[in-house]
Amino acid sequence: MDFEPREVDVVDVHQLSRELRELFSSQGLAVLSTHERGQPYCNLVACASTEDLKKLVFATTRATRKYENIEGDPRVSMLIDNRSNEAADFHEAVAVTATGRAEEVPGDERDAYLALYLAKHPHLTDFVMSPTCALMKVCVDRYYVVSRFQHVMVLDMDA
Protein backbone atom coordinates (compact mmCIF):
# COMPACT_ATOMS: atom_id res chain seq x y z
CA MET A 1 0.00 0.00 0.00
CA ASP A 2 1.24 3.43 -0.94
CA PHE A 3 -0.18 5.61 1.78
CA GLU A 4 -0.90 5.64 5.43
CA PRO A 5 -4.67 6.13 5.61
CA ARG A 6 -6.03 8.53 8.16
CA GLU A 7 -9.71 8.76 8.97
CA VAL A 8 -10.72 7.12 5.68
CA ASP A 9 -10.71 3.56 4.51
CA VAL A 10 -8.44 1.99 1.91
CA VAL A 11 -10.93 2.17 -0.95
CA ASP A 12 -11.15 5.94 -0.54
CA VAL A 13 -7.37 6.27 -0.60
CA HIS A 14 -7.17 4.52 -3.96
CA GLN A 15 -10.00 6.64 -5.30
CA LEU A 16 -8.37 9.83 -4.02
CA SER A 17 -4.93 9.01 -5.41
CA ARG A 18 -6.50 8.29 -8.80
CA GLU A 19 -8.16 11.69 -8.70
CA LEU A 20 -4.92 13.36 -7.71
CA ARG A 21 -3.07 11.74 -10.61
CA GLU A 22 -5.77 12.97 -12.97
CA LEU A 23 -5.65 16.48 -11.56
CA PHE A 24 -1.84 16.65 -11.67
CA SER A 25 -1.65 15.45 -15.25
CA SER A 26 -4.30 17.98 -16.35
CA GLN A 27 -2.54 20.96 -14.74
CA GLY A 28 0.69 22.37 -16.18
CA LEU A 29 1.35 25.01 -13.57
CA ALA A 30 1.57 24.96 -9.80
CA VAL A 31 2.12 27.64 -7.18
CA LEU A 32 5.34 27.14 -5.27
CA SER A 33 5.79 28.73 -1.88
CA THR A 34 9.16 29.28 -0.22
CA HIS A 35 10.23 31.77 2.41
CA GLU A 36 13.07 34.14 3.12
CA ARG A 37 13.64 34.50 6.87
CA GLY A 38 9.95 34.00 7.52
CA GLN A 39 8.67 36.13 4.65
CA PRO A 40 6.55 33.84 2.41
CA TYR A 41 7.22 34.05 -1.33
CA CYS A 42 5.07 32.48 -4.10
CA ASN A 43 5.87 31.60 -7.72
CA LEU A 44 4.22 29.89 -10.62
CA VAL A 45 6.24 26.90 -11.81
CA ALA A 46 5.70 24.28 -14.52
CA CYS A 47 5.20 21.09 -12.55
CA ALA A 48 5.01 17.31 -13.01
CA SER A 49 4.37 14.53 -10.52
CA THR A 50 5.61 10.96 -10.20
CA GLU A 51 3.17 8.09 -10.66
CA ASP A 52 3.32 7.24 -6.92
CA LEU A 53 2.52 10.90 -6.08
CA LYS A 54 5.47 11.01 -3.71
CA LYS A 55 7.43 13.56 -5.70
CA LEU A 56 6.57 16.80 -7.45
CA VAL A 57 9.08 18.09 -9.99
CA PHE A 58 9.80 21.61 -11.23
CA ALA A 59 12.74 23.52 -12.72
CA THR A 60 14.32 26.86 -11.90
CA THR A 61 17.49 28.73 -12.73
CA ARG A 62 19.88 28.98 -9.80
CA ALA A 63 20.08 32.77 -9.80
CA THR A 64 16.45 33.09 -8.68
CA ARG A 65 15.03 34.06 -5.33
CA LYS A 66 13.11 30.79 -5.03
CA TYR A 67 16.30 28.78 -5.45
CA GLU A 68 18.09 30.93 -2.88
CA ASN A 69 15.17 30.54 -0.47
CA ILE A 70 15.18 26.75 -0.85
CA GLU A 71 18.91 26.69 -0.20
CA GLY A 72 18.18 28.57 3.04
CA ASP A 73 15.26 26.32 4.03
CA PRO A 74 14.15 23.35 1.89
CA ARG A 75 10.64 23.26 3.38
CA VAL A 76 8.14 24.29 0.68
CA SER A 77 4.47 24.20 -0.09
CA MET A 78 2.85 23.80 -3.50
CA LEU A 79 -0.68 24.43 -4.71
CA ILE A 80 -2.16 22.62 -7.69
CA ASP A 81 -5.76 23.33 -8.63
CA ASN A 82 -8.21 23.29 -11.53
CA ARG A 83 -10.06 26.56 -11.04
CA SER A 84 -11.39 28.27 -14.16
CA ASN A 85 -11.93 31.75 -12.77
CA GLU A 86 -15.75 31.32 -12.74
CA ALA A 87 -18.23 31.48 -9.88
CA ALA A 88 -18.72 27.73 -10.30
CA ASP A 89 -15.21 27.25 -8.98
CA PHE A 90 -16.60 27.33 -5.45
CA HIS A 91 -18.37 24.03 -5.82
CA GLU A 92 -16.46 22.55 -8.76
CA ALA A 93 -12.78 23.34 -8.30
CA VAL A 94 -10.37 21.06 -6.53
CA ALA A 95 -7.31 22.58 -4.86
CA VAL A 96 -4.48 20.46 -3.54
CA THR A 97 -1.87 21.84 -1.18
CA ALA A 98 1.31 19.81 -0.85
CA THR A 99 3.92 20.25 1.85
CA GLY A 100 7.37 18.75 1.74
CA ARG A 101 11.05 19.34 1.19
CA ALA A 102 12.64 20.48 -2.04
CA GLU A 103 16.07 19.52 -3.30
CA GLU A 104 17.93 19.50 -6.58
CA VAL A 105 17.56 16.12 -8.31
CA PRO A 106 20.85 14.24 -7.79
CA GLY A 107 22.86 13.16 -10.84
CA ASP A 108 21.96 9.47 -10.77
CA GLU A 109 18.21 10.21 -10.74
CA ARG A 110 18.34 13.04 -13.25
CA ASP A 111 17.59 11.07 -16.43
CA ALA A 112 14.41 9.58 -15.03
CA TYR A 113 13.07 12.87 -13.63
CA LEU A 114 14.07 14.75 -16.77
CA ALA A 115 12.14 12.30 -18.96
CA LEU A 116 9.11 12.63 -16.68
CA TYR A 117 9.28 16.42 -16.75
CA LEU A 118 9.85 16.82 -20.49
CA ALA A 119 7.12 14.35 -21.38
CA LYS A 120 4.73 16.86 -19.82
CA HIS A 121 6.50 20.07 -20.89
CA PRO A 122 8.34 19.29 -24.18
CA HIS A 123 8.61 22.99 -25.07
CA LEU A 124 10.79 23.60 -21.97
CA THR A 125 13.65 21.44 -23.31
CA ASP A 126 16.06 24.34 -23.90
CA PHE A 127 15.28 25.81 -20.49
CA VAL A 128 15.77 22.60 -18.51
CA MET A 129 18.88 21.55 -20.44
CA SER A 130 20.70 24.80 -19.64
CA PRO A 131 23.62 24.24 -17.24
CA THR A 132 22.26 27.16 -15.20
CA CYS A 133 18.91 25.47 -14.64
CA ALA A 134 18.25 23.18 -11.69
CA LEU A 135 15.76 20.32 -11.87
CA MET A 136 14.09 20.20 -8.44
CA LYS A 137 12.07 17.49 -6.72
CA VAL A 138 9.78 18.02 -3.79
CA CYS A 139 9.48 14.98 -1.50
CA VAL A 140 5.86 15.38 -0.43
CA ASP A 141 4.98 14.48 3.13
CA ARG A 142 1.35 15.51 3.08
CA TYR A 143 -1.43 16.57 0.69
CA TYR A 144 -4.40 18.69 1.76
CA VAL A 145 -7.18 18.10 -0.74
CA VAL A 146 -9.93 20.70 -0.81
CA SER A 147 -13.15 20.06 -2.77
CA ARG A 148 -16.82 21.11 -2.65
CA PHE A 149 -15.74 24.44 -1.23
CA GLN A 150 -14.88 23.27 2.27
CA HIS A 151 -14.45 19.52 2.21
CA VAL A 152 -10.86 18.87 3.26
CA MET A 153 -9.03 15.54 3.31
CA VAL A 154 -5.50 15.06 4.52
CA LEU A 155 -3.30 12.47 2.87
CA ASP A 156 -0.09 11.58 4.72
CA MET A 157 2.59 10.01 2.56
CA ASP A 158 4.99 7.28 3.64
CA ALA A 159 8.46 8.52 4.39
Binding site: T61, A63, T64, D126, S130, P131, T132, C133
Partner: peptide, 11 residues
Protein backbone atom coordinates in the same frame (compact mmCIF):
# COMPACT_ATOMS: atom_id res chain seq x y z
CA UNK B 1 24.41 41.42 -11.87
CA UNK B 2 24.33 37.78 -12.98
CA UNK B 3 24.67 37.14 -16.71
CA UNK B 4 23.22 33.78 -17.74
CA UNK B 5 24.61 33.31 -21.22
CA UNK B 6 22.97 29.91 -21.65
CA UNK B 7 19.41 31.14 -21.35
CA UNK B 8 19.93 34.79 -22.28
CA UNK B 9 18.79 36.31 -19.00
CA UNK B 10 20.27 38.94 -16.72
CA UNK B 11 19.46 38.91 -13.00
Amino acid sequence: VTVDGYLGIVV
